[in-house]
């Protein structure tokens, strides 16, 4: 690991100041991703600004019935929060499907939002990767791309966003609170991450030195769930994941929220599918039509062509289970 300076500011102003003035600064949360990337030589910050001492580690009720989640709340704590478990099961399930118990105990909400891709060629520093080394090319295009994205990709990058939590947040219309030296702003989580285009190295809309301080959830939809499909039962990234919420009245879908993981460079809000679902019948054929419409734009490679049908099947299965649960109620 390349040597670096380490500072642990006492308050948010000091943290923002450090990030703005120290060259090559990176914020450190739980360290589960950043430290890993530093060990691999992929991230080489000159200064690490440890923000874990800042007071952003609580979950609070909002007056509208939503929740405000501090950026430093640990994944395990958030998954176990009774309000999250009760009102936002999709979020709790997503968190618990990620990584391992040890990692979730360390990982923070803010850090998880900024988790970087697990593309094999991003991690192998001898390979060409436009995200790691802009302009070097993309060895994934014709390499092992079984885990790579099929929506929102470009010729320069087909890497996926690996987070489970973010997929749930996308389905829940979460809003990210960001602070910089210029003040505070709020960004819908679906706008936080960028598609790669020609600049896959730019992954979010955050300006240098901006710090995520909280995530706010609007009031919860009726029932929601997270379904993650992967190569082993635990400790594997999603091949496909689905975060869904569904409200059905008299056999008609009155609300549909759908986000996909494992298939795009960002947590993928499936707005086309939602549009088709809403107001339509809550049946298998309608679910399939919606899923297929969302995936119509898929751009696949040799290794990941199966993801189109897998994503379709997983969306249909998840909506089916949600609609059946609703019927039981």
């Amino acid at each position: 690991m390349k040597p670096f300076a380490y500072v642990k500011p006492a308050d948010v102003e000091a943290a923002l100041h450090a990030a703005a003035t120290e060259p090559g600064a990176k914020f450190l949360g739980g360290g589960t991703n950043l430290v890993d990337l530093m060990r691999e030589g992929i991230e080489q910050p000159q200064t690490v600004v440890d923000v874990t001492g800042l007071p952003f580690d609580t979950v609070e009720d909002l007056p509208d019935g939503g929740l405000r989640i501090g950026a430093l709340v640990r994944n395990s704590a958030l998954a176990a929060d009774p309000r999250v478990r009760d009102r936002y099961p999709v979020l709790s399930q997503a968190l618990l499907s990620g990584a391992s118990g040890q990692l979730r105990n360390m990982a923070t909400v803010g850090g998880n939002l900024l988790q970087r891709t697990r593309c094999l060629y991003f991690y192998d520093t001898t390979s060409a990767c436009n995200k790691r080394e802009p302009g070097s090319g993309c060895d994934a295009l014709d390499g092992f791309n079984r885990s790579c994205a099929i929506l929102g990709v470009s010729d320069s990058c087909i890497a996926t966003h690996p987070s489970d939590m973010c997929v749930a947040l996308a389905a829940l219309d979460a809003v990210v609170e960001v602070r910089g030296t210029g003040g505070t702003r709020r960004v819908p989580v679906t706008d936080l991450h960028r598609l790669p285009g020609d600049t896959p190295e730019i992954e979010t809309d955050l300006a240098p030195g901006e710090l995520i301080t909280a995530v706010e959830l609007p009031p919860a939809p009726a029932d929601s769930r997270y379904r993650k499909v992967r190569d082993r039962a635990s400790y594997a990234f999603a091949l496909v994941s689905v975060a869904a919420a569904l409200e059905v009245s008299d056999g008609t879908v009155t609300l549909a929220r759908l986000a996909l993981g494992g298939i795009a460079p960002k947590p993928w809000r499936a707005r086309e599918a939602e549009r088709l679902l809403t107001g339509g019948p809550a049946d298998e054929a309608a679910f399939r039509r919606a899923a297929e419409a969302e995936l119509a734009a898929a751009s696949v490679r040799d290794g990941n062509a199966f993801k189109t049908s897998l994503a379709t099947a997983t969306i249909v299965a998840t909506l089916r289970e949600l609609s059946q649960e609703g019927a039981v109620r």
Binding site: L120, Y123, D139, G143, D231, R232, A233, Y235
Partner: peptide, 20 residues
């Protein structure tokens, strides 16, 4: 293309975990 092992880690080389 070049004989490189590109998943040399316990994260990406999938051994069975307890749940498997």
């Amino acid at each position: 293309r070049n004989g490189r092992v590109v998943n040399p880690s316990l994260s990406e080389y999938h051994l069975p975990v307890h749940a498997d």
